Simulated assay, not measured.
Amino acid sequence: MIDNLVVGIKNIASYVPEGIQDSEYIARMSNIPKEVIEKKFGILKKHKAGPDEHVSDMAIKAAKKVLQGFDPMDLDLVVYCGSEYKDYYLYNIAAKVQYEIGAMNANAFEIHSLCSAGVYSLKVLKSMMLADPKLNNVLLFTSSKETDIVDYTNERARFMFNFGDGAAAALLVKGCKKNRILETHMITNGGFAEDVACYGVGSRNYYNYEVLDRSLRNLDVKDPKSMKERLDPISIDNFTKVVKGAIEKSGYSVNDLDFVAPIFMKRSILNMILKNFNLTEEQSYVLENYGHCQSADAYIALLEAERLGRLKNGDLVAMIGAGTGYTWASTAIIWGEQK
């Protein structure tokens, strides 16, 4: 009998392409010392998809991996929560993946909240599943190839030099008590909404033919100094607040927190957040060998932590994400198999 009050993550999988851009490569392309790339930017290496491997290709590989042993015909819904930079502009990648994996009984749609979507989508889908008796098995997936649109010669885009390619997928099942999804907390500050964008793409510049220049289709930052001055004083506090909010909404105390599955951030920033919860680096995972794979980060961190033996049954975990716009989000889960 299905427990209609519980939604769990039955399986998690990730995929990263074989290509590598390491700190030496980034240093050479950006003319920034390798030591700065590794220490200040927090990146040792990241994965790079080839010209013939697209966002949907990586997504399909992660989706098929997460569905091993599960019939895709039993899926009720397929949802994409990844990068808005996809195979095509104004294109439904969720429908593409639904078709390619053979989930012919499932509907498909997309959730966009930039790099916080992978975390916040768990709340959206859990709520939908609990409200709809016919929604029992959902595939959530994310994918990103944003390395394509990062220009290493553009100093304004420095904070995006850590972007890496990759995909992740999660199989959500109603009544499943494995990796049980608890509550979510989000903070939004729309004052940052136009700070980062591909400014040459979209309705504002559609009739401005000068923007056909390739560089104007890349990610850019309007005023890096201003964004940093406004973002730095609030970012760590907001990460702390969303973790605390998700935990307390779930009926726990911050003292119960066992593990943080983070978005990509350099080691020093992650340790500041962990310190606020009396946690050590062994109770998290530094994504210095992956870079920032958009909404896939927290899922990759969970898989790596499991591989390293840093997670145990019953651990209270906070998944965290943040997206330009600017949003900070955290979802709490109880790790492992539960009775």
Rank of each mutant, 00 (worst) to 15 (best):
D3V: 01
V6M: 05
Y15V: 11
P17R: 02
P17W: 09
Q21W: 07
M29D: 13
M29H: 06
I32C: 05
E35G: 02
K40F: 12
K45W: 04
K46Q: 14
A49C: 01
P51S: 13
D52W: 03
E53D: 13
K64C: 00
Q68Y: 06
G69C: 11
S83M: 06
D87R: 07
D87M: 04
N92F: 00
A95E: 14
Y99C: 08
E100D: 15
I101C: 06
G102H: 03
N107E: 14
L114W: 03
C115P: 00
S121N: 09
L122Q: 15
V124Q: 10
L130I: 11
K134Y: 07
L135P: 14
N136E: 00
L140D: 09
I149M: 10
F161V: 00
G166E: 13
A167M: 05
A168N: 03
A168D: 12
A170G: 07
G175P: 03
C176E: 15
G190N: 15
G191F: 01
E194P: 02
E194D: 14
C198M: 05
G200W: 03
G202L: 00
E210I: 11
L212G: 03
R214A: 09
R217G: 11
L219V: 10
D220A: 14
V221Y: 12
V221K: 04
M227W: 12
K228H: 02
E229R: 09
L231T: 00
I234R: 05
I234L: 07
F239P: 05
T240C: 03
V242M: 08
V243A: 06
G245S: 04
G245L: 00
A246I: 06
Y252K: 00
A261T: 10
R267S: 00
I269N: 06
K275Y: 14
E282K: 14
Q283R: 01
V286N: 12
V286P: 07
E288G: 04
H292E: 05
H292L: 10
C293M: 13
C293D: 07
A296R: 02
A296F: 02
L303Y: 12
E306K: 07
M319K: 09
A322Y: 13
T327R: 10
I333F: 03
I333C: 00
I334M: 08
E337W: 11
K339S: 15
K339G: 14
K339R: 04
